[in-house]
Design a protein around this nucleic acid. Structure first.
Lengths: 197, 197
DNA sequence: CAATTTATATAGCGATCATTACAAAAATAC
DNA sequence: GTATTTTTGTAATGATCGCTATATAAATTG
């Protein structure tokens, strides 16, 4: 039952599915946070011994970074919602509302893994997470530049700030309806800034 | 130079100033977070050996809880800003703006210790911090009930959410002016909710 | 076949974690 | 004075941290 995707490498083949192992790592990181989960727990959940984990992923931080990449790719559909030409205020409001729903949907995956990772005690992991966080803020800025160039920076900062707060609330156990109500209220500032102002 | 405040207790007198030690602990917890600082570092900063720390404060988590109490008492002047009869939207906007200033004022004390502590990996410490967080939310609700009873809950949630996001940004190094700009934009939603709506 | 390469499992590395025996020291109580 | 109580410093507890040295197993290469 060994898998050999692409090139038939020389040595002994890997005995575990790399993607499936990443899934397990992602679930654990999301549920308990980078600081809350140890390498031993990760290896066990991935069905692998620590040496294989290090051989395949390099380090705990590198594994986390790879997990964050998958998460950012398959998480919130930012690019779909913020397509060029979409109505700015409404689209950003929808993004906040969708984030609230996703953050509170499952207690095992509460909040945003990127935004939570950016606050952890581990400097290396926080640095990785903040890079992904900055990339998301940049996407919001790019979306706004054509229509509201002068306000793109503030509004993008505001979006990240609110989503970070929503993520914290979701991890504290705030239920979906309260989170969505906050997201909708946060949308009022966007409308006031982009439509009225 | 030994201090004996109230009752002359029986045994050997304490050799350190309890309040000064708490100051040092607060500085360290604020700078590095509950998970980021160990008991050994705490004891050294407080000028005390670990056994004395445990004799005086009980445990790392209990020390953190006591520090949080001091912090909540001497931190943001919530009660002063949210006095009964104060203009609701303007007062809450001022609170956000003041929070932004304080959060970003000193890199050694960036963000809010309560809101950051509420996201830590340690369950006991996070529980303590969330109690203080809930108490602050309750003060906002009480402030709003007389004038906007129907919206007090959402607005209080929104305030805590935004402040939590501001705290995260401050810890990530966002400068004061950008944080204040976000706080002011967040104030637009409060005005829209309380004045217009 | 032997040689090489890679992944595996066992076991343990030194460091740090929060916490605590233990005994000497310093105060009051009798 | 002696007894009692509390704090002190030294040193170490077991647990867990991220990580790895080592040897064996399983594949390709010649």
């Amino acid at each position: 039952m060994t898998v050999k995707e692409k090139s038939k490498s020389r040595g002994r083949p890997r005995a575990f599915d790399r993607e499936a192992a990443l899934d397990q790592a992602q679930a654990l990181f999301h549920a308990q946070g980078y600081d809350g989960v140890g390498v031993a727990a990760l290896a066990q959940a991935m069905g692998v011994n620590p040496p294989s984990l290090y051989a395949a992923f390099g380090s705990k931080a590198a594994l986390f970074d790879e997990v964050l990449g998958r998460y950012a790719r398959n998480g919130l559909p930012i690019d779909a919602l913020l397509a060029p030409g979409a109505p700015p205020a409404a689209s950003l409001g929808t993004l906040l509302r969708k984030a609230a729903h996703i953050y509170a949907a499952d207690p095992q995956t509460a909040g945003c893994m990127v935004l939570e990772g950016a606050r952890g005690a581990d400097a290396e992991a926080a640095c990785c997470a903040r890079n992904w966080k900055a990339a998301s803020a940049q996407r919001v800025r790019d979306f706004l530049i054509p229509t509201h160039a002068d306000k793109a920076a503030v509004v993008a900062d505001y979006m990240v700030t609110v989503m970070s707060g929503l993520s914290a609330d979701a991890r504290a156990g705030t239920p979906t309806d309260r989170l969505v109500a906050v997201a909708d209220m946060a949308g009022l500032a966007i409308a006031a800034m982009l439509d009225d102002g």
